[in-house]
């Protein structure tokens, strides 16, 4: 009972619906029954450590990997049946660039646009627009191998936008880039978001998720641990501020025990003790008054890293 044609043109219904989505490779469960929806124009994130099942989920959404069980609809369509139709509406930025290194920068856009059935004239105009968007006009004739990592990513994003996609899938868009290149990329993605492009991205960087995602799910070991906007997740699973204390590697555990009642909650890590509290400075003053003498102390805002730690007991980047 599919009303696919309705969803193709209706703005408010979700563009992605996944329920109990499972992917197994033999005995290995890569994705173990995840459910989520993505609304049009939304910027949706899958946050989790390496091996959490993010990329597999992305490949299923991208209609290049068939699900083992569960329901999946992209733009109201079943990817098992309408793979080419779904892919014609997607832009895909894979984790590792697969630009054609035997072609020049602009040529990569030209050949890729053709795969969507665009005319040569249309492809040519669109390539110039997107080279400008990706700030690569000067590199149109350059060899792909001569581009920096950040430029290659931008070219891959430009390639993914050739067909003016309804949904842009980004698998770890800034992994391996230096901070400056990441900020340029975030700025470009933010523009797309403002233009109303639906973004679905995976990341294991908290700052990236906080920058770009309206809403995200935290995934670990193929399952969803929590869902919400970055700020609501932080509110729900963490405190407003975090006081980080270092007492030296051999004393952290012992001090954490003595700090049991400090703040809302205390987390002992091998290298530091985290005190979750609404008021970091106040807490630090109280502890100092009580005679605690940390080697270093730092008050910071709570982040998604803390949410992840709370949910899984582990750090995001090992």
């Amino acid at each position: 009972m599919s009303f696919a044609w309705v969803t193709l043109d209706t703005v408010s219904s979700p563009v992605i619906v996944a329920s109990d989505l499972v992917k197994r490779y033999g005995e290995v469960v890569a994705v173990g029954g995840v459910s989520f929806e993505v609304a049009p124009g939304e910027s949706f994130g899958l946050l989790g450590p390496n091996g959490a099942g993010k990329s597999t989920t992305m490949r299923m959404i991208g209609a290049v990997s068939t699900r083992t069980s569960g329901r999946l609809e992209i733009l109201g369509l079943d990817p098992d049946r309408y793979g080419p139709e779904i892919r014609s509406q997607l832009g895909v930025v894979p984790q590792s660039d697969n630009l054609d290194e035997e072609l020049r920068v602009r040529e990569n856009l030209l050949v890729y646009g053709r795969y969507f059935g665009m005319t040569r004239a249309h492809v040519s105009g669109r390539a110039d627009e997107l080279l400008a968007f990706a700030q690569l006009q000067d590199k149109a004739k350059a060899k792909v191998t001569d581009l920096s990592g950040g430029m290659k990513r931008r070219l891959t994003i430009a390639r993914g936008l050739m067909n003016d996609p309804r949904i842009l899938l980004l698998d770890e868009p800034t992994t391996g880039l230096d901070p400056q290149a990441r900020h340029i990329l975030w700025d470009r993605l933010f523009r797309l978001k403002e233009q109303g492009t639906t973004l679905v991205l995976t990341t294991h960087y908290m700052d990236e998720a906080e920058q770009l995602c309206d809403r995200l799910v935290v995934v670990d070991k193929g399952a969803i641990m929590a869902e919400g906007s970055p700020s609501s997740l932080i509110r729900r699973y963490s405190s407003r501020e975090v006081l980080e204390l270092r007492f030296g590697a051999d004393r952290n555990a012992e001090m954490a025990d003595r700090l049991r009642d400090a703040g809302d909650r205390v987390e002992a890590l091998p290298d530091r003790v985290l005190v979750y509290t609404a008021d970091g400075e106040g807490e630090l003053a109280r502890l100092t008054d009580a005679g605690m003498r940390p080697i270093t102390s730092l008050v910071r805002r709570s982040s998604l890293e803390d949410v992840f730690l709370r949910l899984t007991g582990r750090s995001l980047i090992e």
Partner: peptide, 13 residues
């Protein structure tokens, strides 16, 4: 230089 992987993200099979 997995261009086939790139192409398979498009409607082309």
């Amino acid at each position: 230089n997995p261009t086939f992987v790139g192409i398979s993200s498009s409607p082309v099979s």
